[in-house]
Design a protein around this nucleic acid. Structure first.
Length: 242
DNA sequence: AATGAGGTCAACCGCGCGAAT
DNA sequence: TATTCGCGCGGTTGACCTCAT
């Protein structure tokens, strides 16, 4: 399933992540957060590119990740939002706690798309997604918010999906999710989503920290002055992650 | 038991966007 | 204003898995 390990042109490792690499990344991100994905692998002791580390963390190592076993409600949500937003997998995934964009995308392509195609009547002029949407919902147009900016993305599932304001809603919702790349957003997202009370997680982290040298943990903060000091240098910041 | 086809999903790639300089 | 950097997104790939023959 995973790819054959190899090296890219910069000598960075590619392919399947080993348990040891996972442990290193997990331990580092849990303790210090992801302050700079590009620099992170160097300090975490990984010969991976930052992009690869980010992907591994976001799609696999985050403690709050839910894997497999999609519920009917989750599948309905994916189908509805795919019809509404198109292939905006990150936006769709944001409405499914614990699910990643990659996983939602895979599930769509391997299961839901196929299922929808099977249900499509050849004579029908409506798209599969539209058919599902119109079949499942009758909308109270008076409930439509006057301004998309007043609508929290968390409430997108409550929005109407047909009618005159659909395009505006879709556009507004998509834009809300297209510019979330600030460091602050990443950090707050991390803190919101990570469940560090997970005992299994704590145990593995403690083990790794115990095995690591002191310089491994302190080195980044000696060499890099640009890290948010409030988060990383202050002893109290420890509480943020635990 | 062997094998080929199709399915699954972790991981890579390229692009676009926003922030910083 | 132009350029550079870092990040996130969506599309695609490819190795492993499962199942039918």
């Amino acid at each position: 399933m995973a790819r054959t390990p190899g090296r890219d042109k910069n000598g960075m490792k590619k392919g399947t992540w080993t348990p040891e690499e996972d442990r290193k990344l997990k331990a580092y991100v849990s303790k210090y957060g992801f302050w700079n994905w590009r620099q992170l692998p160097k300090y975490a002791g990984l010969s991976r590119c930052g992009k690869s580390c980010r992907l591994r963390w976001m799609n696999y190592l985050r403690p709050d990740i839910k894997r497999g076993n999609y519920t009917k409600e989750e599948e309905d949500t994916i189908v509805r939002l795919q019809g509404l937003l198109g292939n905006k997998w990150s936006a769709i995934a944001s409405q499914l706690p614990g699910r990643t964009d990659n996983e939602v995308k895979n599930h769509w392509h391997t299961n839901l798309k196929k299922r929808l195609n099977q249900n499509t009547q050849p004579s029908s002029t409506t798209s599969p997604q539209e058919a599902t949407i119109t079949e499942n919902h009758s909308w109270d147009h008076e409930a439509i918010p006057n301004n998309i900016s007043d609508t929290s993305p968390n409430n997108i599932l409550d929005l109407p999906m047909d009618g005159p304001m659909t395009a505006q809603i879709v556009e507004g919702f998509a834009s809300l999710h297209s510019s979330s790349s600030s460091r602050e957003t990443s950090l707050s997202l991390c803190m919101e989503t990570v469940d560090f009370s997970n005992t299994e997680y704590e145990a593995s982290l403690d083990t790794y920290i115990a095995e690591s040298s002191g310089s491994f943990w302190t080195e980044p903060f000696i060499t890099d002055n640009n890290i948010e000091s409030w988060l990383l240098l202050d002893e109290r910041s420890h509480d943020v992650f635990y």
